[in-house]
Amino acid sequence: MKIKLNLGAISEPLQSEKLKTGDWGTHYPVVDKEKCNGCKTCEQYCPDLCIEVKEVGEEKYAVVDYNYCKGCGICASVCPFEAIKMELKDIFKV
C-alpha cells in the first residue's frame, strides 16, 4: 500500500490533537466546582490547552480534558481561589 506524502513535508493544521499526551504526567488536576468561579485564569495559563471553563446548566466551572493534560500543575498554581488540587495518579501509588 502506498502512503500519501505531502509535497515538501507540508502539514495540515492541528494534527497534534491526534496525540494524546494525557498519560505523560504523574499527577492530575481535580477542580472543586464549589470553589471555582469560572475566572478562566487556569485556562489562560495551561500550556497544553486542556482546561477550559464550561457552562453546565446554571453552573460555570473549569473542566479538564484528561486526554491531553500533562499534570504540570500550572493551573493549580495560578488559580486565585485554590479550586484545583493536584492528585497522584493511582498507578503511581505504592
Partner: peptide, 12 residues
Amino acid sequence: PLAFGCYAPPHI
C-alpha cells in the same frame, strides 16, 4: 492554514 518546513523523523 498549512505548515511549511516541518521536520521529519527517520520513519518518514
